[in-house]
Each structure stands twice: as C-alpha cells, then as structure tokens.
Simulated assay, not measured.
Amino acid sequence: MSGAAGLVISRAIARDLYQGNELTKFFSLLMAVNGVFPILSPIFGGMVLKFTDWKGIFIVLGIIGTILFLATLLYFKETLTIDYSQENDPKVIFTALKSLISDKIFMSYALVQGLVTGAMFCYISGSSFVLQNMFSLSAQGFSLVFAINGIGIVFMSQAAGRLSYRLGEKLLLQIGLSIAVFGSIALFISLFLPKHLLAVTIPLFFIVSMVGMVNPPAFSLAMQNQKKWAGSASAILGLGMNLIGGLLSPLVGIRGNQTYVPMALLILICNIGAFLIFYLYLNRQIPYNSSNGI
C-alpha cells in the first residue's frame, strides 16, 4: 500500500514541478530508478541473507521505511500550489476521475502506457520458465539476461530524456512503439524457426528496453494538461499499467512451461494494440514539434 502511494505521489509531484521536455526528462529519471532497483534489490537481499535469516530482510525494510519517513517529514516541501489545491471531498475525487476518464486523449495515452507495460509483465511472468526450462539456462544465466534487460530499460529511459529535446515527445513515442512492435514480431516469428536462445533473447531485449523509451514521453504527454488533477491522473496511469499486467500475467502459463506461444502472442497483441492506438488516434491529435515536444 505504501509503495502504491509512493508511485502515484512521486509522479504527481513531477507534474507539479515540471512540464514539457523537463517533465519527460524528470520522469525518465524515475524510470531509471525503477529499472535499477529491481536489478540491485535481489543482489542486496542475497548479501543480507549471508549475515542473517529471512527475518533480517524485514528488519532492513523497517529501517529503510523509517529513513524514508524521517526524510519526508523533515526535508520534503509541498509542491502543490494553492491555485490547484482541491478539497478533501469524495465528490471532488469523483469529479476528477469522471473528467479524466472522459478525456479521450488522456485515456489513449494511459492505454498505450498500460499495454506496453503489460507486454513487460508477460515477459516477467514467462521468461524464467521459457529460458530455464526450454533453453536450459542456469539460474545465474537467467539472472544475467534479466539484468541486461533491466539495464536496457535504464539506458533507454535516459536516452528518452535527452532525445525529447531534439525529437519531441511524440516522435520519440512513435519510434519506441515501432521498435517494440518489430521486436514482438521477431519474437513471434521465432516460434516457427529452429530453437535458438538468441532468437528469443534479442527480441525480448528490444521489447523490454522500449518500455524505458515509451513510458516517459507517454506519461509526459498524458500529464501535459492535467495540472489540476495531477494526483488522480497519476493514479489512473499507474492503475492502467498494473491492471493490464495483472490480468495478462496468468494467461502466459495457460499451455504449460514448455512453450512460449502464449507469451509471444500476448506481447505481440499488447505492442501492436499500443501502436494502433497511437497511429490511428493520437497521431492525428497533436502535431509534431521538436522544439517543445508537443
């Protein structure tokens, strides 16, 4: 529950402080953090378990939580200006949600972000079974592949922050979605080719790493006009990503752990769906502009 609050509020704070390319750049930094810590956390957890048992993990989490609480209490300042503050009233929250859900452009960006992240959830759910059972990768080998893909997210998210100034958010989003679609097609084609590890891991790298390129501009464009409802908008964007991923993840294993047909098919559907939403609708709504990204 605390993690959910942190994800939503941190994104809303970003919208309070930045806009346009600066918002994309800052969200790219958040994406990099999200990409780094899933790589470092298992390593750190393994180090902790060398000195204590499983109970020690919860003690470490308690210490981290205490540090976060004190840092927020002592050093964090309110970023929401009085002009955009809202009453703490359920009616206001309902009005905000109703306004956002009826905003077709905002919801389209939320779907794009949700589908691309859903494809990554499919990879997370199925990759260990596919790579270890079908391609006989050791636990260390799988960890290496997982780490490389995580580094790909970090690198691409940082690239997105820098390239947004030159290309603009919309063109950057189109490039990221296009590469994700090509990676998904390549992964699906590999089903009909002789079994080879690289035929799976290379497409997966592009599919996963493009999450780092797609999410920052999609988030920035979705939040451009949501200063008033920044918190609710951030919540919907986060809900979309986790809800789609949560619904798709169990489907990855419907044919057992000796095939990656469901994983490849679901990833393909997600990324093609995201690209079609962008190309058929969003592409016609906002003109390209490399100077300000909108």
Rank of each mutant, 00 (worst) to 15 (best):
F182C: 14
L187S: 03
I189R: 02
M223A: 09
G212C: 11
L204R: 02
S190D: 02
L187W: 04
L197M: 15
A230F: 02
A218W: 04
L172T: 01
I207L: 13
S184N: 11
G176L: 11
P216D: 05
A218D: 05
S178T: 15
T201Q: 09
L172E: 01
F182H: 04
G176R: 11
S190W: 04
Q174N: 14
M213K: 01
K195W: 06
F192C: 08
I207W: 12
L197K: 05
K227F: 05
L221Q: 11
H196F: 15
F182D: 06
V181A: 01
Q224V: 01
I207N: 04
E169C: 15
K227M: 02
V200I: 11
P194D: 14
A230M: 01
F192G: 04
L187R: 00
Q174D: 12
G168I: 03
E169M: 15
G212Q: 13
S220H: 08
L193H: 09
W229I: 14
L191D: 06
W229L: 10
K195F: 01
I202C: 10
G168Y: 06
G168M: 09
F206S: 00
I202R: 09
N225S: 13
L167W: 15
N215E: 00
L197H: 11
I175V: 13
P203M: 02
G176N: 06
W229S: 04
I179V: 12
E169R: 12
H196Q: 14
V211G: 00
I202Y: 10
G183L: 04
L173C: 15
G176H: 03
A180T: 09
L173T: 14
K195S: 12
T201N: 00
H196N: 14
L172K: 02
A222G: 03
K170E: 11
I179G: 07
A180Q: 02
L221I: 10
